[in-house]
């Protein structure tokens, strides 16, 4: 699998994603510059976390105007795999590649810690290595992670929800919702299932040395689905 990791000015998890893809998983991975207009033959694209354009105005609002996003949009509409992590998720929402929007955490604070997530779908190219309902651990690190959408949209996207914040036994409730996301949504795909955005950081939970290897299954799922494509 050849993966392109897009660097926007202000991205800060690009190197971490490249490290997991190359050094941990042994994949071919390249960095793509926000001003590029071509994806250099990549099989999958990662929009990494960070503070693109300082998160000024709104998170992801300026990054989505980058030249590369045109190519990413075309790639996605052709069925290509696009993974947006944290700020990358926010860029996907601003781009309209995923429905909804992100607001500030209800607690009004930046939160960096491990959370537990329930895997809602295992039939996507990003989640096929998980077991249905599996409870996994991944860290979050964001000030703006409260997912929201209009009520009608929320009803429509139920089948697209890939991860929800949950308790240790998979239970969903306010006590386990770190940022106030609607219906505890932590990550979702587009209708076609080839674009995934999530607030938690799989690249920070892909090695035992970092306390969890659950995030690696997302990357491994992508590898697997591309191998069978």
């Amino acid at each position: 699998m050849k993966v392109g990791v897009v660097i926007f000015p202000g991205s800060n998890c690009d190197a971490d994603c490249l490290y997991v893809l190359k050094d941990v998983l042994g994949q071919d991975a390249v960095s793509l510059w926000h001003q590029d207009t071509a994806l250099r033959g990549c099989d999958a694209i990662v929009l990494p976390g960070g503070f693109s354009y300082g998160d000024y105005l709104r998170t992801g609002a300026v990054a989505r105007l980058s030249p590369i996003m045109g190519a990413v949009r075309r790639f996605a509409s052709g069925g290509g795999l696009v993974l947006g992590i944290c700020n990358g998720f926010q860029i996907l929402l601003e781009s309209g590649l995923l429905p909804g929007a992100i607001l500030r955490n209800t607690g009004l604070r930046f939160i960096c810690r491990f959370v537990t997530l329930r895997v809602e779908r295992t039939d996507t190219p990003f989640t096929n290595r998980f077991k249905p309902g599996q409870v996994i651990r991944m860290p979050i690190a964001h000030n703006e992670g409260r997912y929201t959408a209009e009520a009608k949209t929320i009803r429509q996207i139920q089948p697209q929800v890939a991860f929800r914040y949950c308790g240790p036994d998979g239970q969903v409730g306010d006590a386990f919702n770190p940022n106030g996301s609607v219906e505890a949504i932590a990550g979702l795909t587009n209708a076609a299932g080839n674009v995934l955005g999530l607030m938690p950081h799989p690249e920070r939970s892909s090695e035992a040395a970092l306390g969890s290897e659950d995030g690696r299954l997302i990357f491994e799922s992508m590898i697997e689905s591309l191998a069978h494509a």
């Binding site: 998890c13 976390g49 930046f110 960096c112 950081h201 690249e203 920070r204 090695e207 970092l210």
Partner: peptide, 8 residues
């Protein structure tokens, strides 16, 4: 409140 994990 600090991102203490970035750079992994």
């Amino acid at each position: 409140q600090y991102d203490h994990m970035v750079q992994t």
